[in-house]
Design a protein around this nucleic acid. Structure first.
Lengths: 263, 263
DNA sequence: TGATAGATTTCGAAC
DNA sequence: GTTCGAAGTCTATCA
């Protein structure tokens, strides 16, 4: 790595390069040099304005933001508040910087959908190139985990339930759990990892209708399995002759143990 | 601002404070001193591991991440790829740092839902406190804009249409546009800024049913207005005696002009 | 490539 | 606080 104007002496290891108050030319060179480099995350803290054109149009007035370009070409511009960036681009086909009218401009574009984010830098306070490491990540408690757990222990939903299939496709969309109750009736189970609203009821109703259409001679039950339901959703269930069963998303011991470990 | 161990000389303006390779004690002091300060965004680049317990459970193995805490208490931990952080917490009730077994630990928690994110710092490369500025932001092309435009020019949907109401509440949810056609029939219009799927059809059907219930003696039409529909959604519309009208989300001239301005 | 559904969705508005 | 729906949602999966 050759040192640049404004580069600091401790640019080793994770911190590949740091520029303090770079000129537009050196910022553009810095950006073009590091963007999309393997495992390098580029960050610029600057007064800048941001324009977006694509599925919608937006303008962020000149203000101080943190601009982040990751090695996969994703771009995000963070303001003072919120997890969500002010502007972003999850995938880009091209990210490049240039100097225009004495200012460094970063343009990130993608086709399909055709979109552009343009960042015009005014005062640049800091530019960093960081070399991050990928590390293992595990998540549990998704709907998929819940489905696997209930497929192993269907009695949690109802005594005598036998699972016939998971992710059974009926027309469009898939039935989370397709089962047989103790009386030989078909059971369509729709799972929700969190409180269920009427969309969940609608989904369940669609699947039940699809099964009834395919198997007209059999009785078909519909069960919404979730940790809780909203009141209107429960009414909708009752109205349509569907059922609700309370199931907790995570094994009860797990979160408690985790909470204990954290405090 | 009093200078800390490792603080750099150019800590003025936007860059409130910068620490290079701080000790666990100084990092904890730094975090507790800056977190939730007005307009201050705190960032730490470090080898760390992250645990999350709440709606789900997750663990990120020790690796190099960018940890960001904004002044509203939101937390996000970014890895090398993607706009989405590895871990995050959109709202927190408490963010605090302390030293545990010789390591700085950051804990961000919230009640309702009860959630905790714990970051254990190993090697800390950089810690920044940045003072960001809020600036104006405008977005156009949202469904709300579309609704306003169509309320002004309902003939775009159909000749002779008269808008009676917008966001009319019927039971749960609101009718985007409630209108009267040239023959005096009531018209429920559901808008979508992007391609509409069967959820949009379901929404429309619910609203139409609600209006028919409230006004049993009147004929009620249902129109889905969107730039396009999926094939299954179109079938569902036909099946339920509902209609589709193609409306483009943005005025055709706008995006083209914007694109031109950007390149 | 298109369609569907999940997501620790986030975010904001209405009640 | 609850409920609901939009979002520039994003992302993975499957036909």
């Amino acid at each position: 790595m050759k040192p640049r104007r404004g580069a600091l002496p401790y640019c080793v290891g994770v911190l590949r390069e740091q520029l303090s108050s770079p000129t537009p030319v050196s910022l553009a060179a810095f950006l073009n040099g590091h963007v999309r480099s393997c495992d390098v995350l580029v960050q610029v803290v600057a007064e800048c304005e941001v324009e977006y054109a694509g599925r919608a149009l937006s303008t962020a007035d000149a203000g101080c933001y943190v601009v982040m370009v990751k090695c996969d070409g994703s771009l995000q511009i963070h303001g003072a508040r919120g997890v969500k960036p002010v502007n972003w681009q999850p995938r880009t086909d091209d990210v490049s910087a240039f100097v225009e009218e004495g200012r460094c401009v970063l343009v990130a574009s993608r086709r399909s959908p055709e979109e552009v984010v343009k960042v015009t830098f005014h005062d640049v306070h800091l530019a960093l190139a960081l070399e991050l490491e990928e590390a293992g990540f595990t998540l549990s408690g998704s709907e998929k985990d819940m489905q696997e757990a209930l497929a192993r222990s269907p009695h949690v939903i109802e005594q005598g339930l036998t699972v016939l299939d998971r992710e059974l496709l009926v027309g469009v969309g898939g039935i989370d759990l397709y089962a047989l109750d103790r009386d030989g009736r078909l059971v369509v189970v729709e799972l929700k990892r969190a409180r269920a609203g009427h969309e969940a009821v609608h989904q369940l109703a669609r699947y039940v209708a699809a099964v009834r259409l395919q198997v007209p001679h059999r009785e078909v039950r519909g069960i919404l399995a979730a940790p809780s339901v909203t009141a209107p959703a429960r009414e909708a269930l009752t109205r349509q002759g569907l059922e609700f069963v309370e199931v907790t998303a995570l094994a009860k011991s797990e979160p408690a143990a985790m909470q204990g470990a954290l405090f």
